[in-house]
Amino acid sequence: MHNYSEFISLMGNKILSKNEKQKRLYFEVGNENIIEVADYLFTKLGCRLSTATATETYRGIEVLYHFSLDKSGEYYCPRIVMTDKKNPRMNSITPVVRGAEWIEREMSEMLGVTFEGHPRPEPLLTGNHPQNIKVPLRKWRSNG
């Protein structure tokens, strides 16, 4: 019922690794391909961007986009891993998906990811903050 093979074969070697679950497809793509993948998912497949999650793991900073295909309830989740924890950088998908603007801004201030090509790369939640909070979601893990 949930057939991702077409999508997987279409993307070919752009998908570095994948993890298929009942209605969810988590797959890893390279930074250079994310815009193309996002464009395909959003424009061709008609997916809606639910949100994106940035996580700090041992491998580095991971950014996981959640594209929801509303017709069937499936989720396509492209993952980008940035191994450089000091200065993680990746391409922004905001030029393709307008709704990603706030989501990327928030990830940027919470985990310090720089989104290249973002039209408005300023903090969203902590703008004008009196205490000047920096990357709060990384603070306690980056010491170890």
Partner: peptide, 12 residues
């Protein structure tokens, strides 16, 4: 729009 007045850090 400027937000963050209600930010309580739930995810943290």
């Amino acid at each position: 729009l400027e937000i963050g007045w209600m930010h309580r850090g739930h995810e943290f």
